[in-house]
């Protein structure tokens, strides 16, 4: 039975899809059969970020409506073994997410996969609620600035109270904070919130800190999850985050887009992931 993870935030544009792609790729690389689903009906982006937009025939909504079978809609990633994408419709909207249909698809996916990663749309309305409803774990993506933190806080409240686990009085969704677009310079100048400030306000365990990085835009342009970019600091941070998610103890290395050599000596190369 799979673990269902929702990547959500409340605020838009903080890095949910980037994170969902990186996370799913990261989990698959560790040998877990993983599917990543786009819940952003009508504004789909996951297929672009995953680089499979030219191979989409059927989508999530087709499967919900019964016009296609699940295996017809699933797209195998060409780079990572065991990684699949379930894209969504560009022409419909969130009302097309009928909960019975979503439940059925989730049920099928749970049986066949180790991890189901749900890329949530922004907001707190039906699309976001459908994405979070079946989750076992949640990664709340937050930028280190006040409006993102406030929206994340709202989302955390909803994750606690409006999920299927909450309705059935089961163990609550296990939630983590992932700070993204962290710019060390701006934090030092006082323009951005420090990690401690964000955690104080959200009161959740920290999964990782992903630095602001040019490589993220490059990754999205080339349709490659950034975690596959070996040279990227953001990619490295995502690898650490996936490692922590899977139970490894890893130090948080707060790096920026510095030219190599400047920070290598200062920062925690000593604490690279150990087996």
């Amino acid at each position: 039975m799979a673990r269902v993870i929702v990547i959500t935030s409340g605020k838009g544009g903080v890095g949910k899809t980037t994170t969902a792609a990186a996370f799913a790729a990261g989990l698959a690389r560790e040998g877990n059969k993983t599917v990543v689903i786009d819940f952003d009906v009508g504004l789909r982006n996951l297929d672009l970020i995953m680089g499979c937009e030219r191979r989409v025939v059927f989508d999530f909504i087709d499967v919900i409506n019964g016009t296609a079978r699940l295996n017809q809609a699933l797209i195998r990633d060409k780079r990572v073994e065991g990684l699949y994408v379930l894209p969504t419709s560009q022409t419909r909207d969130k009302d097309a997410l009928k909960m019975e249909g979503v439940e059925q698809v989730m049920g099928e996916l749970r049986r066949d996969f180790d991890y189901v990663v749900c890329d949530s749309p922004a907001g707190i309305e039906h699309g976001a609620q459908a994405a979070m409803y079946f989750a076992d774990e949640a990664v709340v993506v937050t930028n280190p600035e006040v409006s993102s933190v406030r929206d994340s806080d709202r989302m955390i409240g909803l994750l606690t109270s409006k999920s299927r686990r909450a309705e059935r009085n089961e163990d609550p969704i296990k939630q983590h904070v992932l700070i993204t677009r962290y710019d060390l310079d701006r934090v030092n100048r006082g323009e951005m919130l420090k990690v401690e400030d964000v955690l104080e306000m959200l009161a959740l365990p920290l999964l990782g800190v992903i630095p602001e990085s040019r490589s993220v835009l490059q990754a999205s342009n080339t349709g490659t999850p950034v975690i596959l970019d070996e040279a990227s600091s953001a990619g490295q941070a995502y690898r650490d985050a996936v490692g922590r998610f899977l139970g490894e103890q890893l130090e948080y290395r707060i790096v920026g887009d510095q030219p190599k050599g400047l920070l290598d000596g200062l920062f925690n190369r000593l604490w690279r992931r150990s087996a």
């Binding site: 929206d151 806080d153 709202r154 955390i156 409240g157 606690t160 109270s161 009161a203």
Partner: peptide
């Protein structure tokens, strides 16, 4: 005993 979140 749990944090009271925005909107609650």
């Amino acid at each position: 005993t749990e944090p009271v979140r925005a909107g609650q």
